[in-house]
Write a protein that binds this DNA or RNA. Structure first.
Length: 574
RNA sequence: CGGGGCGUAGCGCAGUUGGUAGCGCACUUGGUUCGGGACUAAGGGGUCGCUGGUUCAAGUCCAGUCGCCCCGACCA
């Protein structure tokens, strides 16, 4: 393709709307334009990236035995009500009414639809296993769209759904998808890491996320890795063992109230009472589906909202407003505790707190704490669970020897073991060999087709621009005649361009009447892996110049063998 | 949803105590230039987000509204 015939609107200045480097480069490189918050137009270069990545996804999905279909984006609300997710997905769902006042939904995922399809079609175990997938636009009305294609309200996703007759068969189906995912990301030049994750609104038994580890601001997810074994989990899911827990005191001291004027925060209270935060237990009041509930965790810990939510079986969990905290405790905020609450509410105690002795809590009185408190002696709770974030340096829950370390990543794919959640809810069953009716065992598998390329940019870029992995670059090579008006430059460029076409190497020819500097800068910005530079310096020696965008290295090559040279250059790239 | 910020030419921005809108880049045409975002001359392009109000006069002041960006929504 000739640049002059393409539409590649590069920008010299950084658009004010973009914070993330990958977002800035997509805008500056002429890949995307914004239509509304979280809604983007894919320009020609982006379109090509999407096509390249989609092709890899299709090839690997097909290889793994999945079959491509296309389901509607527009769904009747009833099917979502039937599965029960109409309420749990809630505000994230784009909803609208048709002219008959019938409620419709713009799909953000398709478990319901694919299950609807197959409950009417699949009757026998002989038709299983089956895995259907599609590559399609999705809608999610994100609470806060941001970072360009990273968290959009409209985006492209590959979603696959597996149906199996029994657990054993399902395990194989799941493994096939996991293997396919590793193959896909590897071909895209991305070292994806599989980590355990929470199942969220998707439900089901277990799930994994495929993360691209990045050290830029684009890494939204925190992942805990074991430094000894292959344990890896999203912070929402990660558990741990404390490396050196405080041993319980032999003797339970009598509890007593102490005045702590003005000391409401952990720092203030620990300083005032001269105790460590590990001895302090904070009581947080939450609203779980509009009912107040208290959570008790150690003062040095962070509450894990996902774990608490799962433990309570709640759909919605948020911190209670101050007014409610005051109503429940009967005192000002900062002195909540388990003893002497004005209103009786359920308590969830972190399992770590359950092992503590002689600890400090708020007294539910202004400017007062209670010291030497002990669970079961001073208050009761039937609800003990892990509700805190694992912390760096703690022991791995898998091997028990290694220590956890945190890294940041971008989620580029996920796999869910759904079990029979959807097949049961939607009454999708088949007859097994004994003629017995069973619900399908399902899995669902997503890859962010528009997010993954941006994640790749977040990982691979420099101060000049994007550095694409070769297999998802919009073009493999770019021919840069430094002065296209010059006869020798043009002839050489056209000759090479023709060779590339013959070898079927995707190639962009910068035939614009621009100065060399502009072309160099644009080439670096849009990030094509191989630059073929045609200028007087090399031409005088009867050669042309190759520049590797990944290594930055330049070398001279013979014009007649340029096709092979470019192929050789590409072969050495990620 | 809470907090903060911003809406002025395609992009990035300036616009004073209210007095009828400007700069850089980009764009068009001519000339010179041509290996890392050239120089020069002449141009084109704006209902100042929208609505209402105050005023002789509003980009500027007031009210409302819409949109966008950032932070937070894990604090006792």
């Amino acid at each position: 393709m000739r640049w002059s015939q393409m539409y590649i609107p590069t920008l010299r200045e950084i658009p004010g709307e973009a914070e993330l480097i990958s977002h800035q480069l997509l805008l500056r490189g002429g890949y995307i334009r914004k239509l509304a918050a979280g809604v983007y137009i894919y320009l020609p270069l982006m379109q090509r990236v999407i096509e390249k990545f989609s092709r890899i996804v299709r090839e690997e999905m097909n290889r793994a035995g999945a079959i491509e279909i296309t389901m509607p984006v527009l769904h009747p609300a009833e099917i979502w009500q039937e599965s029960g997710r109409y309420n749990t997905v809630g505000k994230e769902q784009m909803r609208m009414k048709d002219r008959h006042n019938h409620e419709m939904i713009l799909g953000g995922t398709h478990e319901e639809i694919v299950t609807y399809l197959l409950r009417g079609e699949l009757r026998s175990y002989k038709q299983l296993p089956l895995n259907l997938y599609q590559i399609q636009v999705k809608f999610r009305d994100e609470i806060r769209p941001r970072f360009g294609l990273m968290r959009g309200r409209e985006f492209i996703m590959k979603d696959a759904y597996s149906f199996d007759a029994d657990e054993e068969s399902f395990k194989l189906s799941y493994k096939k998808m996991v293997d396919a995912y590793f193959a896909i990301f590897k071909r895209a030049g991305l070292d994806a890491r599989k980590v355990e994750s929470d199942t969220g609104a998707m439900g089901g038994k277990a799930a994994h996320e495929f993360m691209l580890i990045v050290d830029t601001a684009g890494g939204e997810e925190v992942i805990m890795f074991c430094d000894q074994c292959d344990y890896a989990a999203n912070i929402e899911k990660a558990t741990s063992k404390e490396a050196s827990p405080t041993p319980p005191d032999k003797e339970l001291k009598p509890r007593r109230e102490v005045p702590t004027p003005g000391a409401a925060t952990i720092e203030q209270v620990t300083a005032f009472l001269n105790v460590t935060a590990k001895r302090l237990v904070k009581t947080l009041i939450f609203m779980a589906d509009n009912k107040p509930v208290a959570a008790m965790i150690r003062g040095d810990r962070e509450l894990n909202a996902t774990k608490l939510k799962n433990h309570l079986g709640a759909i919605d969990l948020e911190l209670a407003p101050n007014s409610l905290v005051e109503f429940v405790t009967g005192c000002k905020v900062g002195f909540a505790g388990p003893i002497g609450l004005k209103k009786k509410i359920p308590f969830v105690v972190d399992r770590e707190v359950a092992g503590l002795t002689n600890f400090v809590v708020g007294a539910n009185k202004d400017d007062t704490h209670i010291v030497d408190v002990n669970l079961s002696r001073d208050f009761q709770s039937e609800s003990i669970a892990d509700i805190i974030n694992a912390a760096e340096g703690e022991l791995c829950p898998a091997c028990g020897r290694g220590h956890l370390q945190a890294k940041k990543g971008i989620e580029i794919g996920n796999t869910f073991m759904l079990g029979t959640k959807y097949s049961t809810a939607l009454k999708a069953t088949f007859l097994d060999a004994e003629g017995k009716e069973n619900p399908f065992i399902m899995g669902s598998y997503g890859i962010g087709v528009t997010r993954t390329p941006q994640a790749a940019i977040e990982k691979y870029h420099d101060e000049h621009g994007i550095i694409w992995p070769r297999n998802i670059a919009p073009y493999a090579a770019e021919i840069i005649p430094l002065n296209y008006a010059k006869e020798e430059h043009r002839q050489a460029a056209e000759q090479i361009y023709a060779q590339m076409a013959e070898l079927e190497i995707d190639c962009l020819l910068d035939d614009r009447p621009e100065r060399a500097g502009v072309k160099f800068n644009d080439a670096d910005l849009i990030g094509i892996p191989v630059q073929i530079i045609i200028g007087d310096k090399a031409l005088q020696q009867g050669k042309i110049e190759l520049k590797n965008r990944q290594t930055g290295q330049k070398r001279l090559a013979d014009m007649e063998k340029i096709g092979k040279e470019v192929e050789a250059e590409l072969a050495g790239m990620y």
